[in-house]
């Protein structure tokens, strides 16, 4: 056997186990969802393949459009806020001081617990009978639970977004901090010694280092927010709510012949979030090129 053939076999053999797992468990389910959405679902006696009927139906329904708009809104606001606040926190903590390690430990804690932990906290603090409402009552600012603004179970979505932020500000902090090496902070110090103002040193030495991390963190946060189910289900309104919540509601209807519709919901948000991420990354690449970095 030639060296080249052996090399090729080594590559294939190495990748095969992971590829088999992901083809069966990731691509397979997506193909099933796609096939159903296009009208191939013999188990529900739906055999119209190929048809775009289900896509046309959901795109024409205002219920879907409203859900999609809210999904996007609940995703983008926490992405922006966590990117800004998480990055500021990473910058504020770039120089280790006494107690940093302990602080960092606690800032990492929300990152490693399930999102449902944040949901539990949001309910305890911001429900109409929660602690914040009780504090306002004690201060004579409200008279009953009804006077407290509806943060939860309303389409304003502040409960949903607060639960996201509880995890995503620390997440952004961790990712951005890890992109800042000790050398960068030393280099910043050199710039200061050479006479740069604190802001100038920060802007020209530290900030460029953090940009790739900020991009990946915000991308992962957005991708997550766009698809999550449990947080909007528990903390959002019955309607309008997000597309994943709506999709599972349709999927669980007694009329199983509407399941292809649920699949169309899923395929549309998959494509939609993919397009948003693609445009975002492309804009970033373009900007990097304009700066001559790539």
């Amino acid at each position: 056997m030639t060296g080249r053939a052996r090399r090729r076999i080594a590559i294939l053999a190495g990748l095969a186990p992971a590829a088999v797992v992901l083809l069966a468990l990731f691509v397979g389910p997506l193909v099933v969802a796609l096939a159903h959405s296009l009208g191939h679902a013999p188990i529900y006696r739906v055999t119209e393949f190929p048809t775009l009927r289900y896509y046309a139906a959901i795109l024409a329904s205002s219920r879907f459009r409203v859900s999609l708009a809210y999904t996007f809104y609940y995703a983008i606001v926490p992405t922006l806020l966590s990117t800004i606040v998480g990055t500021l926190l990473a910058l504020a903590m770039r120089r280790p001081v006494r107690g940093s390690r302990l602080l960092v430990f606690f800032f990492r804690l929300p990152v490693v617990v399930p999102y449902l932990v944040g949901a539990g906290m949001v309910v305890a603090l911001f429900a109409n009978g929660g602690l914040l409402a009780r504090a306002l009552f004690a201060l004579d600012l409200i008279e009953s639970t009804g006077d407290f603004p509806r943060i939860l179970f309303s389409s304003g979505g502040w409960g949903i977004m607060l639960a996201y932020l509880f995890k995503q500000i620390p997440f952004t902090f961790v990712i951005v901090s890890s992109a800042l090496a000790a050398e960068d902070v030393e280099l910043e110090q050199v710039a200061r010694t050479l006479g740069a103002s604190p802001l100038r040193a920060l802007w020209h030495v530290i900030v460029p280092r953090t940009i790739p991390a900020i991009i990946s963190a915000s991308l992962l946060v957005f991708a997550f927010n766009f698809q999550t189910y449990e947080i909007p289900y528990l903390l959002g309104a019955t309607f309008p709510n997000t597309v994943p919540v709506e999709a599972l509601r349709v999927f669980n209807l007694i009329d199983v012949r509407r399941r292809p519709e649920a699949m169309a919901y899923l395929i549309v948000i998959t494509l939609f979030s993919g397009v948003v991420m693609f445009l975002y990354l492309r804009a970033y690449r373009k900007w990097e090129r304009s700066k001559g970095r790539v």
Partner: peptide
């Protein structure tokens, strides 16, 4: 390909997987 399972909505994978 390895990045996809991280960014593709889990709910899309989950329901297809349920049926499979």
């Amino acid at each position: 390909f390895l990045l996809l399972p991280i960014i593709v909505p889990q709910v899309s994978i989950g329901i297809g997987m349920l049926l499979l």
